[in-house]
Amino acid sequence: MKHVKYFFTRKYLLFLLPVIIGIAISGYMMVTDGEFYDNNIYTVSHFVPEIQEYSSMEELESLLEKTRFEISFLGKDDEEYEDKLIKLLWYEYLYSTGTEYDTIASYEGSRKFTKFSMFDNFSEPVFILVYFMSVIAGALLITWDFQAGTAKLIYSSGENKLKVLFSRYGISLAAFSALIIVIETVYALIASGVGGPSEIGLMAQFRINVFSFGEYAIISMLSVILNFWIVYTAAYFASAAFHNCVIPLCGAMIVFVFIMFIRNSGAYGSMWMKFLDSSVFGLVAGMYKNGSNPSATDFLIYLVNVFSAAAIAVAGSVVFYKRDVL
Protein backbone atom coordinates (compact mmCIF):
# COMPACT_ATOMS: atom_id res chain seq x y z
CA MET A 1 0.00 0.00 0.00
CA LYS A 2 3.00 2.31 0.40
CA HIS A 3 3.01 2.84 -3.35
CA VAL A 4 -0.49 4.33 -3.14
CA LYS A 5 0.74 7.04 -0.82
CA TYR A 6 3.68 7.75 -3.06
CA PHE A 7 1.45 7.93 -6.11
CA PHE A 8 -0.74 10.62 -4.61
CA THR A 9 2.04 13.04 -3.81
CA ARG A 10 1.65 16.57 -5.10
CA LYS A 11 3.78 15.93 -8.16
CA TYR A 12 1.41 13.36 -9.60
CA LEU A 13 -1.75 15.19 -8.68
CA LEU A 14 -0.49 18.01 -10.91
CA PHE A 15 -0.94 15.75 -13.91
CA LEU A 16 -4.65 15.60 -13.22
CA LEU A 17 -5.00 19.36 -13.39
CA PRO A 18 -5.16 19.66 -17.22
CA VAL A 19 -7.88 17.05 -17.35
CA ILE A 20 -9.95 18.76 -14.70
CA ILE A 21 -9.58 22.09 -16.54
CA GLY A 22 -10.47 20.34 -19.80
CA ILE A 23 -13.61 18.91 -18.27
CA ALA A 24 -14.63 22.27 -16.90
CA ILE A 25 -14.25 23.83 -20.36
CA SER A 26 -16.15 20.97 -21.99
CA GLY A 27 -18.94 21.32 -19.47
CA TYR A 28 -19.19 25.05 -20.25
CA MET A 29 -19.38 24.37 -24.00
CA MET A 30 -22.09 21.82 -23.39
CA VAL A 31 -24.24 24.19 -21.36
CA THR A 32 -23.89 27.14 -23.75
CA ASP A 33 -24.67 24.95 -26.76
CA GLY A 34 -27.76 23.62 -25.06
CA GLU A 35 -30.00 26.43 -26.41
CA PHE A 36 -29.15 25.45 -29.94
CA TYR A 37 -31.43 22.44 -30.17
CA ASP A 38 -34.39 23.56 -28.18
CA ASN A 39 -36.76 22.28 -30.85
CA ASN A 40 -34.69 19.38 -32.13
CA ILE A 41 -35.24 15.78 -31.19
CA TYR A 42 -32.13 14.30 -32.75
CA THR A 43 -28.56 15.24 -33.36
CA VAL A 44 -26.24 13.41 -35.69
CA SER A 45 -22.79 12.27 -34.78
CA HIS A 46 -19.73 11.65 -36.90
CA PHE A 47 -19.34 9.63 -40.06
CA VAL A 48 -22.80 10.45 -41.41
CA PRO A 49 -22.67 12.17 -44.82
CA GLU A 50 -24.87 15.12 -45.60
CA ILE A 51 -28.47 14.25 -46.46
CA GLN A 52 -30.86 16.23 -48.64
CA GLU A 53 -33.58 18.34 -47.10
CA TYR A 54 -37.16 16.98 -47.26
CA SER A 55 -40.46 18.61 -46.34
CA SER A 56 -42.70 15.55 -46.04
CA MET A 57 -42.57 11.81 -45.55
CA GLU A 58 -43.43 11.33 -49.23
CA GLU A 59 -40.41 13.35 -50.23
CA LEU A 60 -38.24 11.31 -47.84
CA GLU A 61 -39.59 8.11 -49.38
CA SER A 62 -38.66 9.31 -52.86
CA LEU A 63 -35.15 10.19 -51.62
CA LEU A 64 -34.92 6.71 -50.16
CA GLU A 65 -35.99 5.07 -53.43
CA LYS A 66 -33.69 7.27 -55.47
CA THR A 67 -30.68 6.35 -53.29
CA ARG A 68 -31.61 2.66 -53.38
CA PHE A 69 -31.82 2.88 -57.21
CA GLU A 70 -28.44 4.64 -57.46
CA ILE A 71 -26.67 2.17 -55.24
CA SER A 72 -27.91 -0.78 -57.33
CA PHE A 73 -25.57 0.39 -60.11
CA LEU A 74 -22.53 0.67 -57.89
CA GLY A 75 -20.05 -2.05 -57.07
CA LYS A 76 -18.66 -2.43 -53.54
CA ASP A 77 -15.31 -1.09 -54.72
CA ASP A 78 -16.81 2.11 -56.06
CA GLU A 79 -15.73 5.29 -54.31
CA GLU A 80 -19.30 6.45 -53.79
CA TYR A 81 -20.58 3.14 -52.53
CA GLU A 82 -19.92 3.73 -48.84
CA ASP A 83 -21.41 7.23 -48.88
CA LYS A 84 -24.54 6.05 -50.67
CA LEU A 85 -24.94 3.07 -48.40
CA ILE A 86 -24.72 5.21 -45.28
CA LYS A 87 -27.21 7.70 -46.78
CA LEU A 88 -29.52 4.83 -47.56
CA LEU A 89 -29.32 3.53 -43.98
CA TRP A 90 -29.88 7.04 -42.74
CA TYR A 91 -32.99 7.59 -44.91
CA GLU A 92 -34.33 4.17 -43.91
CA TYR A 93 -33.93 5.02 -40.28
CA LEU A 94 -35.61 8.43 -40.61
CA TYR A 95 -38.47 6.93 -42.66
CA SER A 96 -39.05 4.05 -40.24
CA THR A 97 -39.24 6.44 -37.30
CA GLY A 98 -41.25 9.09 -39.14
CA THR A 99 -38.71 11.76 -38.24
CA GLU A 100 -39.31 15.18 -39.74
CA TYR A 101 -36.34 17.05 -41.15
CA ASP A 102 -36.96 20.07 -38.88
CA THR A 103 -36.47 17.96 -35.78
CA ILE A 104 -32.92 17.13 -36.77
CA ALA A 105 -30.35 19.62 -35.70
CA SER A 106 -28.69 21.24 -38.70
CA TYR A 107 -24.95 21.20 -38.91
CA GLU A 108 -22.32 23.82 -39.39
CA GLY A 109 -18.88 23.38 -40.83
CA SER A 110 -17.50 20.34 -42.51
CA ARG A 111 -16.48 18.32 -39.52
CA LYS A 112 -19.69 17.96 -37.66
CA PHE A 113 -23.39 17.83 -38.19
CA THR A 114 -24.29 19.77 -35.17
CA LYS A 115 -22.66 22.14 -32.76
CA PHE A 116 -23.52 19.75 -30.07
CA SER A 117 -21.73 16.45 -30.27
CA MET A 118 -20.37 14.17 -27.63
CA PHE A 119 -17.35 13.61 -29.82
CA ASP A 120 -16.52 17.24 -30.55
CA ASN A 121 -17.29 18.77 -27.22
CA PHE A 122 -16.17 16.08 -24.91
CA SER A 123 -14.75 12.80 -26.12
CA GLU A 124 -12.25 14.38 -28.49
CA PRO A 125 -10.71 16.93 -26.09
CA VAL A 126 -10.84 14.44 -23.24
CA PHE A 127 -9.23 11.83 -25.43
CA ILE A 128 -6.38 14.20 -26.32
CA LEU A 129 -5.95 15.22 -22.69
CA VAL A 130 -6.10 11.65 -21.45
CA TYR A 131 -3.64 10.60 -24.15
CA PHE A 132 -0.98 13.07 -23.07
CA MET A 133 -1.71 12.84 -19.38
CA SER A 134 -1.50 9.07 -19.39
CA VAL A 135 1.68 8.99 -21.47
CA ILE A 136 3.45 11.53 -19.28
CA ALA A 137 2.16 10.18 -15.96
CA GLY A 138 2.78 6.56 -16.96
CA ALA A 139 6.28 7.32 -18.17
CA LEU A 140 7.23 9.38 -15.14
CA LEU A 141 5.66 7.14 -12.52
CA ILE A 142 8.15 4.34 -13.13
CA THR A 143 11.15 6.39 -14.28
CA TRP A 144 11.08 9.21 -11.74
CA ASP A 145 12.88 7.05 -9.18
CA PHE A 146 15.73 6.58 -11.64
CA GLN A 147 15.97 10.33 -12.30
CA ALA A 148 15.72 11.25 -8.62
CA GLY A 149 18.03 8.48 -7.37
CA THR A 150 15.45 6.89 -5.07
CA ALA A 151 15.53 3.74 -7.23
CA LYS A 152 18.55 2.64 -5.18
CA LEU A 153 16.38 2.35 -2.09
CA ILE A 154 13.24 1.11 -3.84
CA TYR A 155 14.91 -1.79 -5.62
CA SER A 156 17.14 -2.81 -2.73
CA SER A 157 14.17 -2.98 -0.37
CA GLY A 158 13.81 -6.73 -0.69
CA GLU A 159 10.65 -6.53 -2.79
CA ASN A 160 10.71 -8.23 -6.15
CA LYS A 161 11.33 -5.76 -8.96
CA LEU A 162 8.39 -7.08 -10.96
CA LYS A 163 6.12 -6.79 -7.92
CA VAL A 164 7.01 -3.09 -7.65
CA LEU A 165 6.52 -2.66 -11.40
CA PHE A 166 3.11 -4.32 -11.50
CA SER A 167 1.77 -2.94 -8.23
CA ARG A 168 2.47 0.60 -9.37
CA TYR A 169 0.96 -0.16 -12.75
CA GLY A 170 -2.19 -1.63 -11.21
CA ILE A 171 -2.70 1.14 -8.69
CA SER A 172 -2.14 3.96 -11.15
CA LEU A 173 -4.29 2.29 -13.81
CA ALA A 174 -7.14 1.88 -11.30
CA ALA A 175 -6.75 5.46 -10.06
CA PHE A 176 -6.82 7.00 -13.55
CA SER A 177 -9.71 4.77 -14.64
CA ALA A 178 -11.67 5.87 -11.57
CA LEU A 179 -10.93 9.48 -12.47
CA ILE A 180 -12.24 8.99 -16.01
CA ILE A 181 -15.41 7.37 -14.64
CA VAL A 182 -16.01 10.31 -12.31
CA ILE A 183 -15.38 12.83 -15.10
CA GLU A 184 -17.69 11.07 -17.56
CA THR A 185 -20.39 10.69 -14.93
CA VAL A 186 -20.27 14.40 -14.15
CA TYR A 187 -20.43 15.10 -17.86
CA ALA A 188 -23.42 12.79 -18.33
CA LEU A 189 -25.22 14.56 -15.50
CA ILE A 190 -24.50 17.97 -17.04
CA ALA A 191 -25.68 16.74 -20.43
CA SER A 192 -28.90 15.37 -18.99
CA GLY A 193 -29.48 18.68 -17.23
CA VAL A 194 -29.54 20.70 -20.48
CA GLY A 195 -32.18 18.42 -22.04
CA GLY A 196 -30.11 17.46 -25.07
CA PRO A 197 -31.68 15.37 -27.77
CA SER A 198 -30.86 11.77 -28.58
CA GLU A 199 -27.80 11.23 -30.68
CA ILE A 200 -27.92 9.36 -33.97
CA GLY A 201 -24.59 7.75 -34.67
CA LEU A 202 -23.06 5.48 -37.20
CA MET A 203 -21.66 3.05 -34.73
CA ALA A 204 -19.68 0.14 -36.07
CA GLN A 205 -19.55 -0.06 -39.81
CA PHE A 206 -22.80 0.66 -41.62
CA ARG A 207 -25.06 0.54 -38.61
CA ILE A 208 -27.10 3.48 -37.46
CA ASN A 209 -27.92 3.55 -33.81
CA VAL A 210 -29.77 6.03 -31.65
CA PHE A 211 -28.45 6.64 -28.18
CA SER A 212 -29.88 8.43 -25.23
CA PHE A 213 -27.48 10.63 -23.26
CA GLY A 214 -27.05 7.97 -20.62
CA GLU A 215 -26.16 5.33 -23.19
CA TYR A 216 -23.89 7.71 -25.00
CA ALA A 217 -22.08 8.65 -21.81
CA ILE A 218 -21.53 5.00 -20.85
CA ILE A 219 -20.20 4.12 -24.30
CA SER A 220 -17.99 7.18 -24.37
CA MET A 221 -16.68 6.33 -20.90
CA LEU A 222 -15.85 2.75 -21.82
CA SER A 223 -14.26 3.95 -25.02
CA VAL A 224 -11.99 6.43 -23.24
CA ILE A 225 -11.09 3.90 -20.54
CA LEU A 226 -10.25 1.16 -23.04
CA ASN A 227 -8.10 3.57 -25.01
CA PHE A 228 -6.47 4.85 -21.87
CA TRP A 229 -5.51 1.33 -20.85
CA ILE A 230 -3.78 0.77 -24.19
CA VAL A 231 -1.87 4.05 -24.28
CA TYR A 232 -0.98 3.98 -20.60
CA THR A 233 0.24 0.38 -20.71
CA ALA A 234 2.47 1.06 -23.69
CA ALA A 235 3.94 4.25 -22.19
CA TYR A 236 4.49 2.72 -18.76
CA PHE A 237 6.26 -0.45 -19.80
CA ALA A 238 8.31 1.18 -22.56
CA SER A 239 9.59 3.70 -19.99
CA ALA A 240 10.33 0.90 -17.55
CA ALA A 241 12.45 -0.85 -20.15
CA PHE A 242 14.43 2.29 -20.98
CA HIS A 243 14.65 3.52 -17.35
CA ASN A 244 13.92 6.83 -19.01
CA CYS A 245 10.77 8.60 -20.12
CA VAL A 246 12.24 10.66 -22.97
CA ILE A 247 12.19 7.96 -25.65
CA PRO A 248 8.60 6.80 -24.93
CA LEU A 249 7.44 10.43 -24.82
CA CYS A 250 9.04 11.10 -28.21
CA GLY A 251 7.41 7.91 -29.49
CA ALA A 252 4.05 9.09 -28.22
CA MET A 253 4.52 12.44 -29.98
CA ILE A 254 5.33 10.68 -33.26
CA VAL A 255 2.19 8.53 -32.91
CA PHE A 256 0.17 11.66 -32.21
CA VAL A 257 1.54 13.46 -35.27
CA PHE A 258 0.77 10.34 -37.30
CA ILE A 259 -2.79 10.39 -36.02
CA MET A 260 -3.12 14.07 -36.90
CA PHE A 261 -1.89 13.28 -40.39
CA ILE A 262 -4.58 10.65 -40.79
CA ARG A 263 -7.09 13.16 -39.49
CA ASN A 264 -6.27 15.68 -42.19
CA SER A 265 -6.00 13.26 -45.05
CA GLY A 266 -8.95 11.05 -44.24
CA ALA A 267 -12.12 10.82 -46.32
CA TYR A 268 -14.13 11.98 -43.35
CA GLY A 269 -13.07 14.80 -41.13
CA SER A 270 -12.61 12.61 -38.14
CA MET A 271 -10.85 9.61 -39.59
CA TRP A 272 -8.14 10.03 -36.97
CA MET A 273 -10.68 9.33 -34.31
CA LYS A 274 -11.52 6.11 -36.10
CA PHE A 275 -7.91 5.09 -35.77
CA LEU A 276 -7.98 4.91 -32.01
CA ASP A 277 -10.96 6.30 -30.25
CA SER A 278 -13.72 5.60 -32.68
CA SER A 279 -12.69 2.02 -33.25
CA VAL A 280 -13.21 1.37 -29.58
CA PHE A 281 -16.30 3.53 -29.53
CA GLY A 282 -17.69 1.63 -32.48
CA LEU A 283 -16.71 -1.65 -30.92
CA VAL A 284 -18.38 -0.94 -27.61
CA ALA A 285 -21.43 0.59 -29.27
CA GLY A 286 -21.71 -2.34 -31.65
CA MET A 287 -21.56 -4.83 -28.81
CA TYR A 288 -23.99 -2.78 -26.76
CA LYS A 289 -26.60 -2.46 -29.47
CA ASN A 290 -26.04 -5.68 -31.35
CA GLY A 291 -25.05 -8.15 -28.71
CA SER A 292 -21.80 -9.88 -29.45
CA ASN A 293 -21.70 -8.81 -33.06
CA PRO A 294 -19.51 -5.70 -33.33
CA SER A 295 -17.98 -4.50 -36.55
CA ALA A 296 -15.18 -6.80 -37.66
CA THR A 297 -13.00 -3.85 -38.69
CA ASP A 298 -13.44 -2.07 -35.37
CA PHE A 299 -12.76 -5.29 -33.54
CA LEU A 300 -9.63 -5.93 -35.59
CA ILE A 301 -8.26 -2.42 -35.06
CA TYR A 302 -8.85 -2.74 -31.33
CA LEU A 303 -7.24 -6.16 -31.20
CA VAL A 304 -4.16 -4.83 -32.99
CA ASN A 305 -3.95 -2.02 -30.43
CA VAL A 306 -4.40 -4.42 -27.51
CA PHE A 307 -1.78 -6.86 -28.79
CA SER A 308 0.68 -4.02 -29.47
CA ALA A 309 0.30 -2.77 -25.90
CA ALA A 310 0.54 -6.31 -24.51
CA ALA A 311 3.70 -6.99 -26.52
CA ILE A 312 5.28 -3.77 -25.22
CA ALA A 313 4.24 -4.73 -21.67
CA VAL A 314 5.80 -8.20 -21.88
CA ALA A 315 9.00 -6.99 -23.55
CA GLY A 316 9.26 -4.02 -21.18
CA SER A 317 8.83 -6.23 -18.09
CA VAL A 318 11.49 -8.69 -19.23
CA VAL A 319 14.01 -5.95 -20.01
CA PHE A 320 13.21 -4.16 -16.75
CA TYR A 321 13.72 -7.37 -14.75
CA LYS A 322 16.99 -8.30 -16.42
CA ARG A 323 18.51 -4.85 -16.44
CA ASP A 324 20.72 -3.48 -13.68
CA VAL A 325 19.03 -0.81 -11.57
CA LEU A 326 22.22 1.24 -11.46
Binding site: T9, R10, A148, K152, S157, G158
Partner: peptide
Protein backbone atom coordinates in the same frame (compact mmCIF):
# COMPACT_ATOMS: atom_id res chain seq x y z
CA UNK B 1 16.31 -14.32 -3.82
CA UNK B 2 15.76 -10.63 -3.20
CA UNK B 3 13.87 -11.23 0.08
CA UNK B 4 17.29 -11.49 1.75
CA UNK B 5 17.60 -7.72 1.19
CA UNK B 6 14.73 -6.97 3.57
CA UNK B 7 17.24 -6.61 6.40
CA UNK B 8 19.99 -5.01 4.35
CA UNK B 9 20.45 -1.24 4.61
CA UNK B 10 21.91 0.57 1.63
CA UNK B 11 23.43 3.97 1.02
CA UNK B 12 25.10 4.22 -2.37
CA UNK B 13 26.45 7.39 -3.97
CA UNK B 14 24.57 10.56 -3.00
CA UNK B 15 21.62 9.72 -0.71
CA UNK B 16 18.30 10.41 -2.45
CA UNK B 17 14.88 10.62 -0.86
CA UNK B 18 11.35 11.74 -1.66
CA UNK B 19 11.67 15.47 -1.20
CA UNK B 20 7.99 16.10 -0.51
CA UNK B 21 8.12 13.78 2.49
Amino acid sequence: DCSVLKEVGVMIDVPSFYKDM
